[in-house]
Nucleic acid binder design. Structure first.
Lengths: 330, 330
DNA sequence: CTGTTAGCGCATTCAA
DNA sequence: TTGAATGCGCTAACAG
C-alpha cells in the first residue's frame, strides 16, 4: 500500500511551501497564476488528494452530518421520508449518511457513529442501550413511545387527531360500521395482549360501531390477506382503517379481486400519506402527516443540538400534525 | 457558542493525563477499574464527545465512505438501487453518504466531496467538468455513455442483450407488431434528432415489424399518456416496450382504463426490473438488471480505487448483464 | 505574493 | 498502571 501523498510531497515537488499549496488548491486569494499552475500540475501528477479529516479537523467544518437509520430502503415509507429529509437537510446545510438495520441495528449504529454528529431514526431498544451503542452521540428517536431524556430526543407524529378526523368524516359520508387491520409487529414486540396506539385511537373513535379487528403482516400482501379475512368475517363493514399505506395498498388490490367496489361498498383509509398511494386505482385516502414538516422538525432538533455544540442539553420533543388526505379510496 | 470539550478537559477534571482518558474511553486494556470509572464519569458530566475528525486523522480509518448522488428519492429506480447499494456496501465495510441533485448537481457534489473518498452516481456533464467540481476525487459514473478516463470510472448495464431477448421471446409468443414509448429526456438533452440507445436496440431488433414510437415524460402519468397515444395511432400494435418501469406502470394503468387486456391484447414490457412492478395487476414484465450484481460492481470499482490508496490508476469499466424478468404483463 | 509558526484533537509510540 | 513526547495532514495567523 503506497504511502499517502501529502501536501508536503506536492510542496517539495513544486518547490514551494505547503501554505502555497493550500492556497493553490483552495483558490484562496493571493497567489500568482504561474505558481498556482505549477502546484496544480504537481498535485495532478502525484495524484494528491487533501485529507478530508485533516481539513475538517482544522476548519471545524460548518456543515454537520446526520446519520439516518432506516429499517429498509425496500419500504416506501422510509424512502419517502428519506427523500424529504434529504431535501430539507440539504437546504439547511446538513449532510445525510444512511444505514439500514437489515444486517442488525447495532452494527449499523456502530458503523455510523464515528462518522456523524447525531443519529436519527426509527430505533428499537431502550434509551440506555442506544446511548451505549452510539457512544455518547446525541440520538433523535422517530415515532418512539419512549419519553425523551438527556441525550435522547424525540420527534413523533400526532396520528390520533388524524384518525379521529377520518372516523368523523367517514360517518358524515354515511359510514356506520368500522373495521380495522392492525399490524402484527406490535404484538410480536409487546405480547399478544398488547394493543397498538393506532388501534386504541381507532376503537375509541368508533365506539360501538366496531365490527372487528384483524392482525396482518406489515406488507402489501399481508394487508391484502388481512383485509379479505376482515370482510369475510364481518361482511357488513363499510369502512376500514388499514394500519399503514403499504397494507392499504394490498387491501385495495384484494378488494379488486373480491369484486368489492372501493369506495362505494367499502371505504379504505391508510396511514402515512405515501406518494405511492397515488399510483393505484382508486388512489389511496390516508391519514397523512406532512413529511416536509416532519423533516423540518428533525433538522430543527439536530440544529438545536449543534448550536449547543453537541453538549448535554435539555431533551427535546417535537410533534408533527396529521390530517386526512382525501383521494379516491374513501 | 461554548468551547468544545476536549480530551484535555476531561483529563484535567478527572485528574489524569489525556492518554488515560483515551484508554478509559476506548477500553484499550491496561487501566484500573477505579480510574476508568472516574474518567467515564467526568466525560459524562462534561458531555465529552471525541472528535471524529481527529480520531480518523490519527487512526487512518479503515472504513471508507462513498458519496452516492441520485436525481431524486421520489423515483423508485433510485431508491431500489440505493437499497441494494446500501446492503452490499455495508457488507463490504463502506459507508454511504447520499445527496440528491434536485437542488442542482454541482451543489450536491460540492457538499458531498469533502466528506467522502469517492463519488458515485448517474452524473450529467462532461468528465472534465465532473473532475473539476469533485476536486480531484475519483468518480464512478453509472449508466454513462462517456468513456472512462483517468479518475473517472464507469459502471453500466448491458440492456441491449435484454431488449433483444425480450423481442425474440415476444415473437415466439406470437407478437407480430411492435411499438415503443421512448423518454423525452433524451431528446431534451441531445436534440430532437437524437435517438436513445434503448430505442436503437429495439428498432434494430424488431426491424420492419415496428408500428411506431411515441415519446413521453419519464413518469407514471407520462408513460400512461404516451401509451394511449401509441395505441390510438397504431391500433394493431400487440407488443410495447416502455422506456422504463415507471412509464410501464402508467401504461398498465392506461390499458386498464382503455379496456385493453394485458397481456392478451397487448404485451407490455418495462425496463429496470423494479420491485414496484410486482405491486400492480398484472405484475410487470421487465428487462431487468441484477441490482445486487450492479451494486457489487460499483463497490468492486470503489474497492480497487481504495486499494490504490486513491491515487491515479487506470480507468475501470464494468458492465452488468440484463435479462427479461417474466411476470404477468407480457 | 510567499514562507514560517502554531496549533486543531486524538492515538501511538516510548519511558517511568 | 500511568505519563510524556510525537505526529497524523491540514489551514489560520502572522510574518516577510
Amino acid at each position: 500500500m503506497a504511502k499517502r501523498v501529502t501536501i508536503l510531497d506536492v510542496a517539495a515537488d513544486a518547490g514551494v511551501s505547503r501554505q502555497t499549496v493550500t492556497r493553490a488548491m483552495n483558490g484562496t486569494g493571493r497567489i500568482s497564476e504561474a505558481t498556482k499552475q505549477r502546484v496544480v500540475d504537481a498535485a495532478e501528477r502525484l495524484g494528491y488528494r487533501p485529507s478530508r479529516f485533516a481539513r475538517s479537523l482544522v476548519t471545524r467544518e460548518k456543515t454537520h452530518a446526520m446519520g439516518f437509520v432506516v429499517a429498509s430502503f425496500r419500504n416506501p415509507y422510509y424512502t419517502d421520508l428519506a427523500a424529504s429529509l434529504l431535501e430539507v437537510a440539504a437546504d439547511r446545510g446538513w449532510q445525510i449518511m444512511i444505514a439500514s438495520t437489515e444486517r442488525g441495528m447495532d452494527q449499523a449504529l456502530e458503523m455510523l457513529a464515528p462518522q456523524v454528529d447525531v443519529i436519527v431514526g426509527h430505533l428499537a431498544g431502550t434509551n440506555a442501550h442506544l446511548r451505549r451503542v452510539c457512544g455518547g452521540l446525541p440520538v433523535v428517536r422517530l415515532e418512539s413511545e419512549f419519553p425523551p431524556e438527556p441525550g435522547v430526543h424525540v420527534v413523533t407524529v400526532d396520528l390520533k387527531t388524524g384518525v379521529e378526523e377520518a372516523v368523523r368524516a367517514l360517518r358524515e359520508r354515511g359510514a356506520q360500521t368500522f373495521g380495522m387491520v392492525d399490524s402484527a409487529n406490535y404484538q410480536r414486540h409487546f405480547g399478544d395482549d398488547a394493543v397498538s396506539p393506532r388501534r386504541q385511537w381507532f376503537e375509541q373513535a368508533v365506539g360501538d360501531d366496531l365490527t372487528g379487528v384483524i392482525v396482518g403482516d406489515e406488507s402489501i400482501s399481508g394487508g391484502g390477506k388481512a383485509f379479505a379475512e376482515l370482510i369475510e368475517r364481518h361482511p357488513g363493514t363499510d369502512a376500514v382503517l388499514m394500519f399503514n399505506d403499504l397494507m392499504a395498498l394490498g387491501a385495495v388490490q384484494s378488494a379488486h379481486h373480491l369484486g368489492i367496489d372501493v369506495p362505494r361498498h367499502v371505504s379504505i383509509v391508510g396511514v402515512d400519506g405515501l406518494a405511492l398511494g397515488e399510483a393505484v386505482d382508486p388512489p389511496l385516502t390516508s391519514v397523512a402527516y406532512d413529511q416536509h414538516e416532519f423533516a423540518h422538525l428533525v433538522v430543527d432538533v439536530a440544529e438545536t443540538i449543534a448550536e449547543a455544540d453537541f453538549a448535554r442539553i435539555e431533551p427535546i420533543q417535537r410533534r408533527a400534525v396529521s390530517r386526512v388526505l382525501w383521494r379516491g379510496s374513501a
